[in-house]
């Protein structure tokens, strides 16, 4: 008999050492997330995957599953809060979907649609953020960075490099590049690196590939993010 916990009333089997997120994904249940990726060490920072475990809010991507836990995820209240947290990410940076190359392939946009986010709700920060287009093949648009550290982790864990880091404190957080000049062109990044492709938003893009897939034919144009997420992340968690 495998162990189980309860997620929104349904029993979810798990193995020791699995997080709530891993067990849920393996069981075919989607929990919204942005900073989580099954191939990399969980980070627990975006807080979209916050679930209520025995009355307490925990990040599903980092919190271990244990026998008999009563976990709530798809409640009206939790999803409303997730929507607000997504709105926070939208107003913190400068996200203009209609003019963004990532539109349709963007997880931030995808999760916002999934959570039925119809406006930004909070006042915009209009943060002044720069771009780094110095590299011949890869570019950074800091306006769209949500500090999920997926590029940081992918560079370390998949590419065995150390190209990115998050620097600064509080609202002044920003992505920095490991190179003498601080520019991407002087770093070890290669257009083939996982780190160059892992960004859930349009902050890190590959040059000269823009709009090769037309708007309307993109990942989230036809499928909801929950479906895509389960299809692509299920195996890794299995």
């Amino acid at each position: 008999m495998s162990k189980t916990f309860t997620l929104d009333g349904k029993p979810i089997p798990f193995e020791d050492g699995q997080t709530i997120m891993q067990a849920a994904t393996a069981a075919g249940v989607y929990i919204p997330h942005l900073c989580h990726h099954p191939e990399f060490t969980p980070h627990g920072s975006c807080k979209l995957c916050n679930v209520n475990v025995n009355g307490r809010n925990c990040s599903a991507c980092t919190f271990p599953a244990t026998e008999g836990q009563d976990v709530l995820s798809e409640t009206t209240e939790i999803n409303q809060d997730r929507q607000k947290i997504t709105q926070m990410l939208f107003v913190e940076g400068n996200h203009f979907c209609p003019s963004c190359e990532k539109s349709g392939n963007c997880q931030l946009q995808g999760v916002a649609y999934h959570l039925n986010m119809l406006d930004n709700h909070f006042p915009h920060f209009y943060a002044e953020r720069k771009m780094d287009a110095s590299h011949p093949d890869v570019m950074i648009d800091h306006n769209r960075c949500i500090f999920c550290t997926l590029c940081v982790r992918a560079s370390q864990q998949a590419d065995s490099k150390d190209v990115f880091a998050i620097s600064g404190r509080g609202i002044n957080k920003h992505l920095i590049v490991n190179s003498e000049s601080g520019q991407l062109k002087d770093s070890d990044i290669d257009a083939g690196d996982r780190a160059a492709h892992i960004c859930p938003t349009g902050a890190i893009l590959i040059k000269r590939t823009g709009y090769t897939v037309p708007i309307g034919q993109r990942i989230y144009d036809h499928k909801q993010i929950d479906q895509v997420s389960l299809e692509t992340e299920h195996e890794s968690h299995g």
Partner: peptide, 18 residues
């Protein structure tokens, strides 16, 4: 609190400034 937030998680990083 806005000044001292470490900025790791969204609700505190953005929320304390909001």
């Amino acid at each position: 609190f806005a000044h001292e937030s470490c900025g790791f998680c969204t609700p505190c990083r953005v929320g304390t400034s909001l």
